[in-house]
């Protein structure tokens, strides 16, 4: 850099970008990197709840996890859970977007109504559905019990699992709807008109024209939905089933929370956090690939 340039730019070319980046870097460092590093370090130790004792145990926490059949179950369960939630939420969200875009009158009204659930916090959504579906006090739940359906997710693990999947997906439908709807609106009218002139029906147009054209959005949504199901469903599970009955709704994130926050076993919880970190990293990589960017 010449002297003249330095005089014109009082901060110098090298300093200014860093200054502008500093707040973001500080946030990333304090709230992401430092805790992640700490979790990594803690995962090789065991300690009492108050941190008054600290024993280095090497890989023991990881070995215990690998040997724990309940943890292996939770791994499988988390992936099944995430796939089901993403599948349902995406299928219904995109389906509704296609219906509204291609056929509905009063599009604005549908658009507003279908966006609403996204405004709810996961725990609130959980409590709301809890009141509706509770087998002893819920409006729908007691009706199901009276109809002799055997509805009781307090002890039936499959029902509990499907309940959490259903509510988690319900909440995410709105998000998918908004994105899919926006992507559909952005498609050039001429393509669809051309298909219509060729005699294609609405279903055919949706399948062969619209969906392929919004594929980048769909892929983005798949990744976002998987991340949501993996990590954000925590509040819902906490409000609804607390991982029960008999671990039927215990996902990896929920278990890491319970072991660390409730059982005060920080080493084991930290080891689980590191495992989750690897999962997030993989999902993020996938997303970057999909968005056509280099990580």
């Amino acid at each position: 850099m010449s002297r003249e340039a330095a005089a014109r730019e009082p901060f110098g070319e090298a300093v200014l970008p860093w200054l502008l980046l500093a707040p973001q870097l500080a946030v990333t460092g304090i709230f992401f990197l430092w805790p992640a590093a700490w979790a990594f370090w803690q995962s090789f130790h065991i300690s009492d709840a108050f941190g008054t004792s600290l024993i280095f145990v090497g890989l023991e926490n990881y070995v215990l996890l690998a040997e724990d059949p309940l943890y292996r179950d939770a791994v499988v369960r988390s992936f099944v859970f995430a796939s089901l939630v993403a599948g349902f939420a995406l299928g219904v969200g995109v389906g509704l977007a296609l219906l509204v875009e291609n056929g509905a009158r009063r599009k604005r009204v549908w658009q507003a109504l279908l966006t609403w659930p996204y405004a709810l916090a996961p725990a609130t959504a959980g409590v709301l559905w809890l009141f509706l579906l509770h087998p002893s006090v819920g409006l729908i739940g007691t009706a199901l019990v009276r109809a002799d359906t055997g509805w009781d997710w307090r002890i039936n693990g499959t029902q509990a699992f499907l309940l959490v999947v259903g509510i988690a997906a319900w909440k995410q439908v709105a998000y998918n709807f908004i994105f899919a709807f926006a992507a559909l609106l952005a498609l050039p009218r001429s393509l669809i008109e051309a298909a219509e002139m060729d005699g294609a029906g609405k279903a055919r147009i949706a399948w062969s024209i619209q969906l392929p054209l919004i594929a980048p959005t769909l892929f983005f949504l798949i990744v976002v939905n998987l991340v949501y199901a993996f990590f954000d469903s925590f509040g819902l599970i906490h409000a609804l089933t607390r991982g029960g009955p008999a671990n039927a709704t215990e996902t990896l994130v929920y278990r890491a929370f319970v072991d660390g926050h409730v059982n005060h076993d920080l080493g084991r919880s930290a080891a689980q956090s590191v495992v989750l970190l690897v999962v997030v990293a993989a999902l993020t990589l996938l997303q970057f690939r999909a968005m056509g960017r280099r990580p």
Partner: peptide, 21 residues
């Protein structure tokens, strides 16, 4: 020590019994 976790374990296993497992 860890009675919170032990109580949860007991409840999990009781639930498994009630499920018929």
């Amino acid at each position: 020590g860890g009675l919170t976790e032990i109580r949860s374990i007991v409840e999990e296993e009781l639930e498994r019994t009630l499920q018929g497992g």
